[in-house]
Amino acid sequence: MQYVMLVRVDPELAATTATDDVEPWVEEGARRGLRVQGAPVEDPEAATTVRVREGEVLLSDGPFAETKEVVAGYDLLEAPDLATAVDYATRHPVAAIGALEVREVWEDFVAPREAPAREPRTDGRDYLFLHVPDPEVYRRLANERLDPTEWVRRVEDEGVTLGGARLRDEADASATVRSRDGEVLVTRGPFAELGEQIAGIDLVRAADLDEAIALAAAHPTSIIGAIEVRPFPAR
């Protein structure tokens, strides 16, 4: 089973708390075959949030919402069950200064491709898309407008995707992990500070922010909510 782990850091705690190096955690993941990939992203000040309303692309500087614990990176995990993924997450150094949101990947949300996808382009910059549907808008609109299949095929054909996942939010498929004063705290379900939840992620390789924004604006989530476009550090 695959899990996306969103790494969330509380900047205040990070400024006052010494944390261990992440390397032993990464090594454990490699040794046990638990960690597939992962990377940090630039902080929220470099984010741009994209919405499309009545056909117009609306941009705002910064993340989709101000939260105490901000997304600082992601990891893709491979584990036999949620308990194993959560146990592995508890040893991540950020557990002490933030939260690790472990979410089961919703397999086959987009039907697998028949022909092999084009190799991703080698130039350009990488961006993390955080999909945040607005529950209100979601209810108002018809379901077929939410199907991202067409978009996924397009970015595969254009070689501008490095992958993506729709994330489950059921209590038995997701958990949020923290550790405070040496005590491990596990909450069932996704990160719960907000009414809105991250419903999925995409890893996009674009020439620049303008192209990334255009790709975000073409995705159905920008119509029924928002997509936060967060750059990865320049390669």
């Binding site: 630039e42 000040e45 500087d61 910059r125 620049d208 922010l209 303008d210 476009v229 750059p231």
Partner: peptide, 21 residues
């Protein structure tokens, strides 16, 4: 400072947009 950093870190292009944009 933030604006300059965002231009650099987010990859805002130094370019006059073309076409419909």
């Amino acid at each position: 400072v933030r604006a300059r950093q965002k231009i650099q870190r987010a990859g805002i292009p130094y370019r006059v947009p073309s076409g419909a944009a």
